[in-house]
Nucleic acid binder design. Sequence first.
DNA 1: TTGTAGGCGTTATCAT
DNA 2: ATGATAACGCCTACAA
Lengths: 344, 344
Amino acid sequence: MENVTITDIARICGVSATTVSRVINNSPGISKDTRIKILNVIKENNYVPNNSARNLKRVESDAIAILAKGLSNPFVAQIIAIGEKECDKRKYSFVFQIVDDAEDEMDVAIELMKEKRLKGIVFFGGLFSQDANKINQITIPIVACTIDIKNSLGEDCCSSVFVDDIVESMKIVDYLCRLGHEDIAMIAGFENDESIGKRRYEGYKMALLKNGIKVNPALVRKMKSNLNGYSLKNGYEVTKELLQSGEKVTAIFAPSDYMAIGACKAIFDSGKKVPEDISVAGYDGLEIADYYQPSLTTIRQPIGDMIDKALDLLFDTMEKEAKVKHIIFEGTLIKGASTAYRSV
Amino acid sequence: MENVTITDIARICGVSATTVSRVINNSPGISKDTRIKILNVIKENNYVPNNSARNLKRVESDAIAILAKGLSNPFVAQIIAIGEKECDKRKYSFVFQIVDDAEDEMDVAIELMKEKRLKGIVFFGGLFSQDANKINQITIPIVACTIDIKNSLGEDCCSSVFVDDIVESMKIVDYLCRLGHEDIAMIAGFENDESIGKRRYEGYKMALLKNGIKVNPALVRKMKSNLNGYSLKNGYEVTKELLQSGEKVTAIFAPSDYMAIGACKAIFDSGKKVPEDISVAGYDGLEIADYYQPSLTTIRQPIGDMIDKALDLLFDTMEKEAKVKHIIFEGTLIKGASTAYRSV
DNA sequence: TTGTAGGCGTTATCAT
DNA sequence: ATGATAACGCCTACAA
């Protein structure tokens, strides 16, 4: 019973390995009888082809992959569901890989590409390493989803799908301003964040500028680097410190829904109310934002559509060698119950 | 630049492929000079070994895998973090795979085992297929985490780590009883759930029995089969129907925190309050349960410890051929703000 | 319709 | 310290 191989099956059936291979791969030109007999023997012996061997031999597979950056990526379920569906539709097989925060997604991609003979890759989230050398090693089409490629590797490198973080962030902070808020705090990215944290902060500044409000540095609080980024706890701790500082604040913009929820908890713990005392706005538009009490004001990114589009672009590049495109999706401002007119 | 192989590197260095292989694998018996030269050439040419070829040739790897069932498994981040850490510590490499709800985890396991020459597998969540034939094909040690193996494949089949769903569920429902509640609704599993849904329902019944309360079938509501199990929306929809039924209810036990949050929303939407009008209890002890408003009364499963222990058992089985063990962890009743004494 | 031969990229074994 | 050779399990020409 140890490790049945194609040769074993062939021997048992009294045919050649080639014939068995043809049956496994649904190749034509096999008599019905042989096919049935072989299938039976395969089943009886629980034969499962060895993928390493197949991948090694195959010049190319029909597989594409989505690599998602970030351990706690809240979109995993959606990514997998859509990936499977689209690949099914187009007769590709689908590989999904989570890339640890600490890993370089390019290294993972290169390894996986060679190992599985991938035909294409979608990168979801994270920021590309600045190492153009690595990206050049990726000899298959790639598409960046949720990554503003222009700001990392330049726009020629590959197609991309994203929302403009600056615009969206400006949209929601502007909304806070229009509610009459002036003392608006923001939880900014980590110290050296050059990615979404920075761009959302840009949007924040622009919204204030537009509304004639001066940025108060005491209200801009960096995430805690000893905690996970964009997490509940991080939002909680930062907000707690902010409140303890005594600085006047009537609204807080958190760059993720989880941080916003953490911020709310800190506010509640301090004996204040959301939104009566302090308004809170998030970012992402997760399902939980709608279910939270109070429901969160947030920017909904159309993640499902974005993944769909990213796959579209990928297949177009693979099959029709389509040109590089950059699709910008618009986020939707969700006006939840966590924000209100300034009362103080 | 197309697909550099070990032979290419060997040729460039003027050595044999064997020597290059030795360098890649840190085998001893290589002169310092050759090693350095080869490493340089590898770097210059961006050579990355092909995993399929390695896996194919290698008799065995030093890899173990954790297979997690369920697209929206909320523990993914923890599983990966702990898996990486423990494997690092013991010089194993770590493979993480999400298994789609629709897939059979045994099939995935068998394929992966052959492909990657795994040394062991931890199954996280889900329920084993009842097919003993399949499990017998898995010729390496396995451990079930979060799965009460006795109820599916019998206790000899492999070690396991789990909390007793019946006991824990009884614990929390008993708490509701002690708060004076009698009209306690429960969201039960799907129609044919033989797994945790059923066992949590068993605990519910036992708690009522213990407190001299008769089960009111109108208060036991099955999950909607057209929605994801244990999800926010499912909890919301089921609770909405329950409230609309007009049946008297002062407390609800939802078998997951997400369902509990969904239930809360339905209650709020109906104009009632949690916990003043209706108490809500969840299950899982997710981080969000603590952050939700009101914080959820729930059963915290010590997931981190459980994964740790599961890996311990796996390595013991692999390295010392330890006997099959079943470790039962205790959950902790978290008394949150979503439950209160009955007021009506 | 089926079979034979060779090779995918790597490593284990045996030699040198 | 290094190399030659075969083999891992499978698939693709080409042949019959």
